[in-house]
Nucleic acid binder design. Structure first.
Length: 371
DNA sequence: AACACGTGGTA
DNA sequence: TTACCAAGTGT
């Protein structure tokens, strides 16, 4: 808190703004605490940064609470069952993050004596930690003068300098500009200040420029076109893929589940049996892709949008005895479905077949509609 | 370098 | 409703 008179140095203006307007978040220490030499717990910084990759603060909060209460230290997470970690991560997306999270915890616990490396290079060598996360942990948890560049900072920097070069090509140029602004005395606060500025003032749409500490010197605002930045390359159109999912229900309202392979889309997560997802017009929409012979009833189609394709999944259901089910998998009681490592697309498919699934204390049988 | 990789919120 | 996008990483 040494920036009472920020003058016209943008770094000091941003820090002074942060002292007054910083967000309070569960994984942070306040700038006043940081000024007294108190650093955030590297484990909590790392966990939050990985969760926040391509993910909103609002979505992360409850997962962060769950993880830190279940596994208070990196050693606890290292000793956890991978399946339990995947269950806890279910719904947050980008499941490779959870697999790498577990690997990273094991590496830190076993090869680094339970302490995170305190340099960018050391951090970046760990699974799931790339340029951004390494710089963020180094600056926030270890007070290193690291240049932190994420989507927020890209927006702030590209507007402040009115950078016409498109992302992602312009990233090195932006990183150099951030490095030149990053102070030696408060690098962690500066990184968090830039991200808070991008998240609350310098927003993608309708930025609140009147409230911005950089409004006097921002090139994009001077040109009256802040929303034109950052310039990005056009993205490809999303293809549509088709498939079928099969929800088998036994006499006791248990659902037949199985495990996905450890890598690739939804890797290591739990699923109901389903066909390949293909671009074929008739791809898997017929019950001939079913995991075992039964009286499969059609019960509608769900649409789920992934990062790089849209999935239209025809959902089939059947009521069978356990003996009828073949292949690898298990029967999961309806009341414990919600604790499973089911990605959202699979929850949607099950809910399509069993509308009462995932609703606490609701007997499934009463609410199942027979087609 | 370009593509794979989830989800939910917002306008 | 469609489109964009949010604290990116791995291959």
């Amino acid at each position: 808190m040494t920036d009472a008179h920020p003058g016209t140095d943008p770094t000091r203006q941003i820090l002074a703004w942060y002292d007054r307007h910083h967000r309070d978040l569960p994984w942070r220490v306040t700038p006043a605490m940081a000024a007294r030499g108190i650093r955030a717990d590297p484990y909590r910084v790392w966990l939050s940064e990985v969760m926040l990759q391509q993910t909103t603060v609002q979505a992360v909060k409850r997962y962060f609470d769950l993880f830190t209460s279940t596994w208070p230290t990196v050693a606890d997470l290292a000793e956890a069952e991978t399946e339990e970690v995947m269950k806890a991560w279910a719904g947050l997306g980008y499941y490779a993050r959870a697999r790498n999270l577990k690997k990273c915890a094991e590496t830190v616990a076993l090869s680094h004596d339970g302490r995170f490396p305190d340099t960018e290079a050391g951090l970046k060598a760990l699974p799931g930690i790339g340029d951004y996360t390494a710089a963020a942990i180094a600056a926030i948890a270890f007070d290193r003068q690291a240049a932190v560049l994420d989507g927020n900072v890209e927006r702030v920097i590209s507007r402040f300098h009115a950078i016409d070069a498109p992302l992602p090509g312009a990233k090195p140029q932006m990183r150099a500009l951030v490095a030149a602004m990053t102070p030696a005395d408060r690098p962690g606060d500066f990184a968090q200040a830039m991200m808070d500025l991008g998240a609350t003032i310098c927003t993608p749409k309708r930025p609140a420029c009147a409230l911005c500490p950089l409004k006097e010197t921002c090139r994009a605002l001077a040109a009256d076109e802040p929303e034109r930045f950052p310039v990005k390359v056009a993205k490809r159109e999303k293809p549509v893929r088709l498939g079928a999912a099969f929800v088998a229900i036994d006499e006791a309202d248990a659902v037949f589940l199985r495990k996905r392979p450890g890598h690739g889309l939804l890797g290591g997560m739990t699923e109901v049996p389903n066909s390949d997802w293909t671009a074929r017009r008739d791809g898997g929409t017929e019950p001939d892709a079913a995991p075992f012979a039964a009286d499969w009833q059609t019960c509608g189609t769900i649409i789920h949008v992934f990062t790089h394709f849209e999935l239209r999944l025809a959902v089939f259901r059947c009521r069978v005895s356990r003996a009828a089910a073949g292949g690898p998998g298990w029967w999961e009681p309806w009341h414990t479905l919600d604790g499973q490592a089911l990605p959202t697309v699979m929850k949607k498919a099950i809910k399509q077949a069993l509308p009462a699934a995932f609703e606490p204390n609701a007997p499934v049988r009463e609410k199942v509609r027979t087609p």
